[in-house]
């Protein structure tokens, strides 16, 4: 059941984004940035946690999860070490994505050439 829910939720968000992309003048950059902000906003409203517990990986694979993780990290940081924690905790959850994407892309760029 969780598999089906993950499929439908991730699919629907992609479908809506595609419809917006095809019918307006926005670029993929606009959509991914907006979704990130929406993710942070939903996290602020306490909704994103519920979405994740309902749709599982269907919600965490989306770029909106990046905004959710940034916000959640800042709040966890604040709870643990006060105002400083907002700064130090913000990248705690997303660190795995940021570090891995930087390391992999650098290593693969050294190893491979651009195809044209």
């Amino acid at each position: 059941m969780m598999y089906l829910k993950a499929f439908i939720f991730a699919g629907l968000v992609c479908l809506i984004s595609q419809v917006v992309l095809d019918n307006t003048k926005v670029t993929p950059g606009h959509i991914t940035s907006s979704l990130t902000v929406i993710g942070a906003l939903l996290s602020f409203l306490g909704i994103y946690d519920k979405i994740v517990s309902c749709f599982g990986a269907g919600a965490t694979i989306l770029i909106s999860n990046f905004g959710h993780m940034l916000y959640a990290g800042a709040i966890t940081g604040f709870e643990e070490c006060g105002a400083l924690g907002i700064f130090t905790g913000m990248l705690g959850n997303t660190g795995i994505s940021l570090v891995s994407v930087i390391v992999f892309s650098f290593v693969f760029t050294l190893l491979f050439k651009a195809k044209d």
């Binding site: 993950a6 968000v13 992609c14 694979i61």
Partner: peptide, 18 residues
């Protein structure tokens, strides 16, 4: 486009859950 986006996005979500 919309249908393909739905199916591929859904598939990524499904594989993620697996």
């Amino acid at each position: 486009n919309a249908l393909v986006a739905f199916l591929t996005g859904g598939l990524v979500g499904f594989i993620g859950e697996v």
